[in-house]
Structure formats: structure tokens, C-alpha cells
């Protein structure tokens, strides 16, 4: 279980995240929806240790808020960042192996399950990271994070800039990952799709996080448009 309490981030004069509190339950998808610029990405970058923040972040009870990004990754925080950040100077296979453990058998099993999840990647393994399309990069980024064997998989805007048909495919994969018992924190502006796969939901606006509770309990007339338009 990942629990974030009273997390705040300030860049220069802007307070991007104000006292955010949020819990990612085990074996469930928790989604965080909200308009662009509301601070969602800053929040998850802070959880991964890439942005400095105040407040506490605990993974299974252990305080990780002072640990380096690499230590957090090794403890099981795996981030699929917005815009994916695939390494162009590495092949797709190398991208996948970068965060994987050294044990060859573990690597083989994980690689097999990633390829099972995204069969399209199998033919691309020896291509350079920048030679593949946006949708394939997104799959590669998710696969790369899964290869680390995460406790919590954080997906930041996985549908960003993808063709609708690819978005469908990515969300199917997320549902399958979740069904396998992986706990996921999903950041999305495509709120409908996010709420479809998520068990718990939070909304973010102007740096503040608000819990919407279990998605199953959301009123059927819940007005998403208020959040956006």
C-alpha cells in the first residue's frame, strides 16, 4: 500500500501541489483525474523522487520520502512518465532490460509476460527506441516499468497523444495488469476511460486532491463535465 500524506510542491513562486493526501490500495487501480495543469504530474514525479516535495510518502509502512529515485525504484515504485521518456539510444529490448533484475530466469518470465500483454512489441525488440511509433512507445514504457517488478505501477497520462484505437488497446492492457493483482496509480485526463478501469478515484484541481471514493459508489449522474468544461 502506498500512502501519501500532506504532500506539497512549490516551484519558484507557484504552489503546484497543496497538501495532497492519497492512498493507493493493494491489488486495485486507483485513478487521479483532473484538468491539465492541476498538478497531477508533479505529484507522481514527487512520489518517484524526481521532484522534491514536503510531506510524507510511505510504501508498505516504510517512509520513502527521503530516499533517492533509484532506491524508490528498487523498493517497487515504477513510473511510466508523461510523454513516456523512452531511451532513443537504446533498443526496445534494452529499454525493457534497463530496470530488470540480474537474474536471467526472472527476466525471461517477466519478458514473456510483457510480450504476452503487448504482442506487438515482440517484432520491435531490436529497433531503436525512437524508431517506433507513439503507441508502441507507450506499450514499451509500460512494459519497461513492469520489468522492474513493481509494488506500485504509476501510469502518468498513458493515453496522451495516442490515436483512439491505441487508447483502447492501452486501457485493455491496464485492465489486464490490474486483474493480475498489480496495484496501479493511474493519472488520466481521459476521465471516462480511467473511471472504467479504476476501483478508487481521486480528483485534482488547482493543486488540491479530493477523494471521490470507490468508483462503484459514484452517482450515475456524476458530472464529469464540471471537472473539465
Amino acid at each position: 500500500m502506498l500512502s501519501i500524506e500532506g504532500l506539497s510542491i512549490a516551484y519558484g513562486g507557484i504552489r503546484a501541489v497543496r497538501e495532497a493526501t492519497l492512498t493507493v490500495e493493494d491489488a486495485a487501480v486507483t485513478c487521479l483525474i483532473g484538468r491539465n495543469g492541476s498538478g497531477k504530474s508533479s505529484l507522481v514525479m514527487a512520489v518517484a523522487g524526481l521532484v522534491s516535495a514536503s510531506g510524507s510518502t510511505r510504501l508498505d509502512g516504510i517512509d520513502i520520502s527521503r530516499k533517492s529515485p533509484a532506491s524508490r525504484a528498487r523498493l517497487g515504485i515504477s513510473l511510466v512518465p508523461e510523454s513516456r521518456r523512452i531511451f532513443g539510444s537504446l533498443t526496445a529490448r534494452e529499454n525493457l532490460l534497463l530496470g530488470a533484475p540480474r537474474d536471467a530466469r526472472v527476466v525471461a518470465t517477466r519478458l514473456a509476460s510483457v510480450l504476452d500483454l503487448f504482442p506487438a512489441l515482440a517484432d520491435l525488440l531490436d529497433r531503436g527506441g525512437h524508431e517506433i511509433s507513439g503507441g508502441q512507445q507507450q506499450m514499451l514504457a509500460i512494459g519497461r516499468a513492469l520489468m522492474c517488478g513493481p509494488r506500485v505501477l504509476i501510469l502518468d497520462e498513458p493515453s496522451l497523444g495516442l490515436a483512439p484505437i491505441v487508447v483502447i488497446e492501452v486501457f485493455r492492457a491496464i485492465a489486464r495488469i490490474a486483474a493480475a493483482g498489480q496495484s496501479v496509480l493511474l493519472i488520466e485526463q481521459n476521465a471516462k476511460a480511467a473511471l472504467d478501469v479504476a476501483t478508487y478515484a481521486y480528483a485534482m484541481s488547482l493543486g488540491k486532491v479530493e477523494s471521490l471514493g470507490a468508483t462503484a459508489d459514484l452517482p450515475s449522474d456524476f458530472e464529469l463535465r464540471d471537472l473539465y468544461l
Binding site: 483512439p164 487508447v167 485526463q189 471516462k192 468544461l229
Partner: peptide, 18 residues
Amino acid sequence: IRGDPQVISAYIGGYVEA
């Protein structure tokens, strides 16, 4: 624009073809 279904779907999702 406010009432355009395509705009709404582009923003809050659903899987509408471009």
C-alpha cells in the same frame, strides 16, 4: 463549442474516432 459532442469526447474521453 460547448455543446459539440466531439469536443466533449476529446476532453473527457470515450473512444470517439477523430
